[in-house]
Amino acid sequence: MTSTHYLVLSAALFMIGVFGVVTRRNIVIIFMSIELMLNAVNINLIAFSLQWGNSLGQVFTIFVIAVAAAEAAVGLGIILALYRNKETINIDEMNVMKW
């Protein structure tokens, strides 16, 4: 397998994530799409790590996963807080900064 294979796969997965972010109105799904995009990035990192025989790519993957965990925790906290106040998780109804 060449790294091109992995890159194409990663690009396609990234695209799916973008598709989700753009078309869905459900904020949880949008978050999940972002996770998909982060995974696509990780596939890239690992593929390059494999290509160059260098483990740094994996180190960065681990950092990305850590950041994703932090992002999910805070993001979901925000979703819960929003839901308590607005009784909705549709982002079209969350376009005001103040209510």
């Binding site: 397998m1 494999l50 290509q51 160059w52 025989g53 260098n54 483990s55 994996q58 681990i62």
Partner: peptide, 13 residues
């Protein structure tokens, strides 16, 4: 790929 067998090793990471 260079297919370095050591790239994936946990120790390296």
């Amino acid at each position: 790929d260079a297919a370095s067998s050591t790239a994936g090793l946990t120790e390296q990471v």
